[in-house]
Design a protein around this nucleic acid. Structure first.
Lengths: 223, 223
DNA sequence: TTTACAGAGGGTACTGAGTGCCATATCGTC
DNA sequence: GACGATATGGCACTCAGTACCCTCTGTAAA
């Protein structure tokens, strides 16, 4: 029934547009009563994203099982769950992408969904990084970075019409975040080196000394 | 007139809640016709954020004037414009923050506003980093990071009741992003150093050599 | 077979946001 | 005083979303 409604709604949205389609149109095509629509979808927008609730639950469950994996890798893998939901139905995802691009109301709705994913990731990272202020800050920035990278890769694939390799595009994008934020990453003024760490520095021959000093300070967290 | 309406609306929202206040209530208190409300605010939600349009225009103008400043610094300074809008009216901002936290509709609306700031920043960064795929990716990830950091600092200040030093909280948060993504930052597989750039690397003393080599390769863009 | 019950779906009427259209000031200009 | 432009009010309408109640169907007990 849910599926019948979502199917009817999506077809109508493609045919005459989201705003030009009323809930009465949808239930008429689905052959059910108007009241039933709102039993299955809290709003008209929800009918366009019928599978996000389940995916969010999957993500939460995945992170609960993540154990002691490297945190950035864990949230990156969690983000890939979303990608797989999209890539499982390429033609549907591409059509929905085009629809969402054109309808402000759907864009706003999608934002609120993305926000829930981001907060799920941030909540996990907060747990991993500790509850200190900087832990929370780091968690939120990394969650935002992962979501932005994921969405960049996903959009690249969607714009291509769902033809290319979605996983590759997202892996590439997440790789940038991983190199910068992952525990194996270079750098770490954000995570100042502990005693016993060694700082290796490579500088151009002609670099002005003040700039070198500035960067060393930055690297060891004095900047 | 706009101000009268916004003032009346905000008072009523605080008194009886956002959803319990109808537009008719607002215009009754403001002493104007119902139709006038929608002339000044496209939706009820807009009355809660009467100054974001101007701030967005300010941000766009600021970035247009940014010249050849370091890109991450430029967008960080642009984000500080938003902070200053909040800190200019601490009591109003704090009340609005509490209201927004409680009303899902307002949270969603705020998301769409934040998104516009983020896209403004990303657009600027795309222009600075070039139109290559990775330039766009980098622009979007950095814009998301800056926004997340800014919002973290801003929320810290708002939660404190608007008592502490808002600028300091946001500076601290943006500092993390700057150290990671700024041109003076450590690392940079994402932005391979040009000839003459300086690369700083931090590694544990006992780290296996292959890992150090791996990280240097990553830093100089051979990874 | 009848009764009691539960749960899914349908129907009706209502609220309230947002829009289009037209009437009515109000104000500066000629 | 006539006139056009801009600001405001009023009215009627659409449509999303909700509250309430009805009907149908299947099931279990008497």
């Amino acid at each position: 029934m849910r599926e019948v409604l979502a199917e009817a709604a999506f077809q109508l949205f493609l045919e005459r547009g989201f705003e030009q389609t009323t809930v009465d149109d949808i239930v008429a095509r689905a052959g059910v009563g108007r009241r039933s629509f709102f039993r299955y979808f809290p709003s008209k927008e929800d009918a366009v994203f019928p599978d996000h609730e389940r995916c969010l639950a999957d993500m939460t469950a995945f992170l609960a099982e993540a154990g002691d994996a490297e945190p950035v890798d864990a949230v990156s893998d969690a983000a890939r769950l979303v990608l797989r939901m999209y890539s499982a139905n390429p033609e549907f995802s591409v059509q929905r992408y085009r629809l969402t691009r054109e309808v402000p109301g759907l864009r706003t709705y999608e934002l609120s969904v993305v926000r829930r994913y981001e907060q799920t990731l941030a909540g996990y990272l907060r747990g991993r990084y500790g509850a200190s202020d900087d832990g929370a800050l780091r968690a939120e920035v990394i969650a935002a970075s992962v979501v932005a990278a994921h969405n960049n890769g996903l959009r690249t694939w969607l714009r291509s019409g769902g033809e290319g390799d979605a996983e590759a595009a997202v892996d590439h994008a997440l790789g940038m975040v991983r190199r910068v934020w992952g525990s194996g990453a270079v750098g770490g003024a954000a995570a100042p080196p502990a005693d016993g760490d060694v700082v290796v520095m490579v500088a151009a021959k002609g670099a002005p000394m003040w700039r070198v000093v500035q960067q060393i300070e930055s690297a060891i967290g004095q900047g």
